[in-house]
């Protein structure tokens, strides 16, 4: 699905990613954990094509294409989805209007006809149930006046609507209470299939109780320094990140 090789990236002259490698296959769930400032959001932003970052080395292949050559929207057309750590508000633009535009643009890129209003509304009703999103939120402006939890659920709702190949969830769990966490996780699990894959970025283990990962990676100082199974997350929870830091320094 996606393969990242030796990725190096800078922002404002400071090197954040320092040779990152990661391979994700269809049907897999990967968790990326790491302390604050490790570069997790940076990785997510680079995959989505944010322009502030300068890529100095490395390559990323996504579904057979050179991802780094594509514009942000072309990546989205290929099925890359990022659930933002901080979803932005777009005043005056209703969620449904926004999503319908997005769906039709993606369809258009694939040479498909636009979705009919009827099918679209049916889909809105169906998918909003998955994340237990009040249907009134669908007609409100994108993220405007949403609570933290609503914003995160809205991200998963959008994910459900756009049905991506690869979803990258950046700290979708942070700031959620236990009910919201369960809802978000349920959404992600419902959408999981053999054809798609998920990268879950978090720095708490608790989300992984609900979304069970096939692999857990530790991102530290711009590199994946350790990869393991679900148990690695528990170990991190217990011991913190310091032992990883020490270990890598020794190594």
């Amino acid at each position: 699905m996606i393969e990242i090789k030796n990725l190096h990236a800078n922002i404002e002259g400071k090197e954040i990613l320092k040779g990152l490698n990661l391979k994700v296959n269809a049907g897999e769930v990967h968790a990326i954990m790491g302390p604050n400032g490790a570069g997790k959001s940076t990785l997510a932003s680079i995959l989505a094509g944010r322009e502030e970052y300068e890529i100095t080395e490395g390559e990323v292949t996504f579904e057979g294409s050179d991802l780094l050559e594509l514009s942000t929207e072309e990546r989205a057309h290929l099925g890359l989805f990022l659930a933002f750590q901080y979803p932005v508000e777009i005043p005056g633009v209703s969620n449904v209007n926004f999503l319908r535009t997005a769906i039709n643009e993606i369809r258009d890129a694939k040479g498909e006809d636009p979705i009919s209003a009827k099918d679209f509304m049916a889909m809105v009703r169906e998918k909003s149930k998955i994340v237990e999103l009040d249907s009134s939120l669908a007609s409100r402006s994108v993220n405007e006046g949403f609570s933290g939890g609503e914003k995160k659920r809205n991200e998963i709702f959008q994910m459900a609507m756009l049905n991506p190949k690869l979803a990258v969830l950046d700290e979708t769990d942070s700031g959620l209470d236990i009910d919201a966490l369960r809802i978000v996780a349920k959404g992600v699990n419902t959408l999981k299939s053999a054809d798609n894959a998920t990268i879950v970025i978090t720095h708490y283990q608790r989300l992984l109780d609900y979304i069970v990962p096939d692999f857990v990676h530790v991102l530290h100082d711009g590199r994946i320094v350790k990869t393991g199974s679900k148990e690695l997350a528990l170990e991190l929870e217990e011991k913190g990140y310091d032992w990883i830091k020490e270990e890598t320094q020794v190594g």
């Binding site: 989505a48 094509g49 944010r50 514009s71 942000t72 929207e73 990546r75 989205a76 057309h77 989805f81 990022l82 933002f84 979803p87 932005v88 508000e89 777009i90 005043p91 005056g92 633009v93 209007n97 926004f98 999503l99 535009t101 997005a102 769906i103 643009e105 993606i106 890129a109 402006s141 994108v142 959008q158 756009l162």
Partner: peptide, 28 residues
């Protein structure tokens, strides 16, 4: 908003259309 534009683009919406969406929202 650069962030708004990026958000729209990440969802597959072209820049032109993103601008039109955001501006129409702004004028709602």
């Amino acid at each position: 908003g650069e962030d708004q534009l990026f958000y729209c683009k990440q969802r597959g919406i072209s820049e032109e259309k993103a601008i039109s969406l955001i501006v129409n929202g702004y004028c709602k």
